[in-house]
């Protein structure tokens, strides 16, 4: 009974919001905030992986150490590529708010190309490391390293697929309140991934080679 009452109340509330011109906008704003909350939980996920890495990074079990393994030129390139892609995803949002559909799609494509080069560089870096005998099973250091950096790389890869799907949707439907919210969300996601990478770069790579 009380469940029913709750349902009625929440329904009435939602109905209230849907009224008038602003209703739709409020709903999209609420959805955007929901995504923000997801990003916070994702932040905690990365926090646990960073904690694991920080605890285990000296346990190399006789295998290669961070300073022997990491090739900084590739990592520095990855950092600047991701940083630039974070900027271009922001430019896509700017174009969207000016109603420039082609600009929006163009900057999203630039972001995808940069993101794809980031993932390619990262995969080739992993493959080189594995060739050198630094597998995920070699030591606790490498297990936590591949889990942390790999989870970030997976996030970027998922973002790429998502962005391609979004471009198809924008091309078909144009800039609507729904696609606007989706572009805002994916640009937040992309900036978030850049922030996570800054800490990967700092804590894993820079402190590793120091």
């Amino acid at each position: 009974m009380s469940h029913n009452a709750n349902h009625a109340v929440s329904h009435g509330h939602g109905h209230d919001h849907d009224h008038g011109h602003d209703g739709h906008h409020n709903m999209e704003a609420l959805r955007q905030m929901g995504f923000w909350l997801f990003l916070i939980t994702d932040c905690i996920l990365f926090g646990t992986l960073f904690a694991t890495y920080l605890v285990l990074h000296n346990n190399t079990a006789g295998g290669p150490t961070a300073s022997e393994l990491f090739e900084m030129p590739g990592v520095i390139a990855e950092t600047f590529i991701l940083l630039t892609s974070s900027f271009t995803s922001g430019l896509a949002v700017l174009c969207m708010h000016k109603g420039n559909k082609n600009g929006l799609i163009g900057w999203l494509i630039v972001t995808i190309i940069l993101g794809a080069s980031f993932v390619t560089l990262e995969i080739s870096e992993f493959l080189t490391m594995i060739d050198e005998g630094a597998k995920i099973s070699t030591s606790a250091f490498l297990s936590s390293f591949y889990t942390l950096v790999g989870t970030h790389g997976l996030h970027v890869s998922v973002g790429l697929v998502w962005m391609i799907a979004l471009i198809v949707q924008i091309a078909r439907r144009g800039i609507t309140p729904v696609t606007t919210r989706k572009v805002n969300i994916i640009s937040l996601y992309w900036h978030f991934l850049d922030v996570v990478w800054i800490f990967v770069f700092t804590i894993v790579y820079m402190m590793g080679v120091m």
Binding site: I40, T41, C43, I44, F46, G47, T48, F50, A51, T52, L54, V55
Partner: peptide
Amino acid sequence: ILGLVIVLVIVIGSI
């Protein structure tokens, strides 16, 4: 801020 507090507790606490 809540998220960051949780992250810092996890990271610093673990170390």
